[in-house]
Design a protein around this nucleic acid. Structure first.
Length: 203
DNA sequence: ATCAAGATTACCT
DNA sequence: GGTAATCTTGATA
């Protein structure tokens, strides 16, 4: 059997354990259809959130209107609005009624870079200083990809937003740290990133 | 009804 | 390094 090449990640991938999916999302390619074009980027930084015993999780105090997508089956996209101006995109993992999700914190742009520049800065070009400032943060990548509240609940096994399989990033290439920007359960080492990738949001 | 916090970012000194 | 911007959500200080 000859390999058919990279394929879209399926439900079975997303349904696995939270930290496994978080680690294995590194190196995979996030794709969003935008009209006739496709925007894509390699996932280089993620954070895991667990609704049961992680006080930083939106789902820690149970299901609400805002976080209900986190309680759905793995493979949906949970998008939330924060600080009055930014969207953040999360991959829901695990089984239905298990509220676990993975925040995509940074990607390395691959396709549709010109459209990302337009979405981010409202113009057709970037200054040299902005080269790594397109998608190196959770709010920035949502702006670049045009991800917003209407994408909350999108099924990643569909054709609008999905993730393409790639070889697993080796463990020795993966950096681990505390999560960024939270005030509770701060000691969990649940941030994972590709070491030395210039699109990671912080050192 | 009211209000503080927020899984952030850009711009300032 | 610090902080303003901006508005939705969830708890009720």
């Amino acid at each position: 059997m000859i390999s058919s090449g990279p394929t879209k990640l399926k439900r079975e991938f997303y349904s696995q354990n939270l930290l496994l999916v978080a680690n294995n999302l590194l190196g995979k390619i996030l794709v969003k259809k935008s009209g006739r074009k496709y925007l894509s980027g390699k996932i280089v930084e993620v954070e895991a959130y667990h609704g049961d015993y992680d006080q930083a999780s939106h789902a820690f105090r149970g299901k609400t209107k805002r976080n209900e997508i986190m309680f759905e089956e793995g493979g949906l996209l949970y998008v939330y609005f924060t600080y009055g101006m930014h969207y953040c995109a999360n991959v829901v993992a695990g089984k239905k009624d298990k509220a676990v999700a993975i925040l995509i914190r940074a990607v390395e742009p691959i396709n549709g870079i010109n459209l990302m520049i337009k979405n981010r800065f409202g113009r057709e070009f970037v200054h040299e200083k902005e080269k790594y400032n397109l998608t190196n943060g959770p709010g920035k990548l949502c702006q670049a990809f045009g991800i917003n509240r209407i994408h909350n609940g999108t099924d990643l096994t569909g054709n609008e937003i999905f993730i393409i399989n790639q070889p697993k990033v080796k463990n020795k290439e993966i950096g681990v740290s505390k999560r960024i920007g939270i005030t509770r359960s701060v000691d969990l080492q649940w941030r994972f990133f590709v070491k030395d990738n210039p699109y990671v949001s912080r050192k």
